[in-house]
Design a protein around this nucleic acid. Structure first.
Lengths: 198, 198
DNA sequence: AAGTTGACATACGCACCGTATGCGAGCATG
DNA sequence: CATGCTCGCATACGGTGCGTATGTCAACTT
């Protein structure tokens, strides 16, 4: 076996465990997800899990980092498709709302994550989502587009509103009909940050 | 022993269990709170708990209803102290932000509650807080003060932003310095709902 | 070729939840 | 007033799941 095979195997088992964890956490929730089942589903045991991630919370942390990175990539893409910086900001937020409609993201990132790991602003990467939004807002403030409020505070508010809206939409009886309402209200709310009415 | 003594005793044990649960859930979190410890702290056993509340989640539901009622009372009081309806609305929201600074409310209502019971809009009383905010917003829309957006959607957004802001403030290193920033940014954001700039 | 490291499996103890069962004090009934 | 039922709560039991300690085997070192 060539050199480096060991670490490749290691990466593979990590990937397998992460995949299994994403599925289990998304379907049953963090608390109800059994580590035995989870690991057995990919042909491993709890030994591999504790060796690679320390404990159950460590596994959740790793899953969240993965999801967070994926979310940020999609949101950034949405922003860069827009014409103006302000429109880009709105698109970025709408992207978050729509992303949060996925049950996987809701359950893991919005419900179990905060309960198990505490407030998102204290997470490992403090949530790349939040950082990205903060930077976008700061840029818009520097450009004179927005009122000179604290960028981090505004980002938290915007993020909280967007993700909570998504949670509400997804739990609604007819998500497809309330989604436009939520986005509409969100655009209206966000316009409060604008220096002059757009 | 006079008639009705039985039910009075019953109410008393319910109250004792609720108190113990509030403390335990607030300090250790829902998952880490032991039902044995919790009940023993007030001189009872798990038997009393399962008899009165069904299961651990039932106990949490009861605690949340209690906290929710308290929050709504305080928020309503804050609103009624204000001069104009719009100012009252803002005061109501600020009250929520400040209420959510209490560790008890954060841990139970904002972190564990959603994780265990699911989205707040699906809770027993669908959160009296949300209902109250929705009604306030609807009244302001009818009065022509706000843009005619969906009242429930706006309430969810506002509530989410406010409570998330509080979570952020409380987790910050210096809560007292970031709280004004959060409130400032919130007022700015909320003004987006206004029909004409105030 | 023998020792060491490291990735993972196995085995054990412990805590905890939910339920089934037991018990004693009040209320109804004859 | 005696008896049986109800009901609030305690006790006992089974099952499950986490974390850790220990074992094992392959790969690397020297």
């Amino acid at each position: 076996m060539a050199a480096g095979q060991r670490v490749r195997m290691m990466e593979e088992t990590r990937a397998k465990l992460l995949l299994a964890a994403r599925n289990a956490f998304a379907e049953k929730g963090f608390a109800a997800a059994s580590m035995d089942e989870l690991t057995a589903a990919v042909g491993l045991t709890r030994g591999a899990l504790y060796h690679n991630f320390g404990d159950k919370k460590g596994l959740l942390r790793a899953v969240i980092e993965q999801l967070d990175a994926e979310m940020v990539a999609k949101a950034r893409a949405a922003r860069e498709r827009a014409a103006t910086p302000w429109a880009g900001f709105l698109e970025e937020c709408v992207a978050y709302i729509e992303l949060a409609l996925e049950p996987e993201i809701q359950r893991i990132m919005l419900l179990d994550g905060p309960a198990v790991l505490g407030d998102p602003s204290r997470w490992p990467g403090q949530t790349a989502c939040l950082r990205a939004t903060t930077e976008t807002i700061q840029a818009l403030i520097d450009a004179g587009t927005l009122h000179p409020v604290d960028a981090e505070a505004a980002a938290r508010l915007i993020n909280g509103a967007a993700l909570d809206a998504a949670l509400w939409v997804a739990a609604a009886d007819e998500p497809r009909t309330v989604l436009p309402k939520a986005i509409d209200a969100f655009r209206c709310l966000a316009s409060g940050l604008l220096r002059s009415e757009a």
